[in-house]
């Protein structure tokens, strides 16, 4: 590196660093600061030391919200990533219409989560929802789709569906990068069909799968609108995203809300590290 380069490096780093500082580091450190205070609204706050953290560790609702988040995360990793991979394999194997399917599968990602959630309100509604209307037309009795035993699974469906297309496109792009001579060699060896997918395609895009799983984990930590609109966090669907909203915004207790924010960050980082460790493999370069 030339000596003069340093100036340019700093110059080019500045805008991003500034942006990150304002919108990421400053709020983060401010939250850390606030988590040691008992706040009442915006104007009054008193230093309470570790009280908020003590409260956090005895907060049953936070524990429940964590478990619900983990359950949702399980559905997301298995079904969102699974379905995306399945669709990508299918689309990768067809010769024409790739563009069409790519658009169709990607489409839900473009729709706002709130709009999708409202759509599913109309599907699930007990009194006049689409699903119950269909059931009644066939002579069955109505089902409460958002009951205590089913609510989280019912909420998981739009959550999974919303982002399947995004991961699908990531997988498809990764697959298209695999050089065709790999497949030609496989063909000569007599490896085709399902075997080809499992022995060749999936191992070759493993690093992308890892990225997608990390994205899915961090994405689930942020789920909010589906829960908030479909169930309002009732019937065992409270997740971290909705719980922090209730504590910080509805209760106007920003001190405790900040404490939960710190918890979510730590929890999210730990989970991603764990996922990375579990999926550790040698990087493949073509």
């Amino acid at each position: 590196m030339m000596k003069g380069d340093r100036k340019y490096i700093v110059m080019f780093l500045l805008p991003a660093a500034a942006f990150m500082s304002v919108f990421l580091y400053y709020p983060f450190f401010k939250s850390l600061f606030l988590s040691f205070f008992r706040t009442q609204g915006f104007s009054t706050k008193t230093y309470v030391g570790l009280d908020n953290y003590v409260r956090m560790f005895s907060d049953n609702l936070l524990g429940a919200a964590t478990l619900h988040t983990l359950e949702l995360m399980f559905y997301v990793i298995v079904f969102q990533v699974g379905i995306a991979l399945f669709l990508a394999v299918l689309v990768d194997n067809i010769t024409w219409g790739k563009g069409f399917f790519r658009t169709v599968f990607f489409f839900p990602v473009v729709i706002s989560g709130t709009a999708i959630a409202l759509l599913f309100v109309l599907f699930y509604n007990f009194q006049f929802g689409l699903l119950n209307t269909i059931l009644q037309n066939f002579g069955f009795s109505k089902v409460n789709w958002l009951s205590e035993s089913m609510a989280l699974k019912a909420v998981a469906i739009p959550t999974v569906w919303h982002y399947v297309g995004f991961y699908f496109v990531l997988f498809l792009t990764a697959m298209s990068k695999i050089p065709s001579d790999f497949y030609e060699a496989a063909k000569l060896e007599g490896i085709t069909g399902v075997k080809k997918t499992f022995l060749l395609t999936i191992p070759l895009i493993m690093s992308d799968i890892k990225v997608v799983i990390t994205l899915a984990i961090t994405g689930t930590m942020k789920v909010f609108e589906f829960i908030y609109i479909l169930t309002r966090g009732a019937n065992g669907t409270e997740v971290l995203g909705t719980y922090i909203f209730k504590k910080a915004i509805v209760d106007r207790n920003f001190g405790y809300g900040s404490t939960i924010a710190i918890y979510i960050v730590v929890f999210g980082v730990l989970l991603s590290l764990l996922a990375n460790r579990l999926l550790k493999r040698d990087e493949i370069t073509y």
Binding site: M1, L13, L14, A17, A18, S21, V22, Y25, Y26
Partner: peptide, 22 residues
């Protein structure tokens, strides 16, 4: 040394913005 310099400059930027916010 280089990375240390980068970190220092980053911190500098951050504090600038903190100050600006305040």
């Amino acid at each position: 040394k280089k990375s240390a310099l980068t970190i220092v400059s980053l911190l500098l930027v951050m504090t600038m913005f903190l100050a600006a916010c305040g």
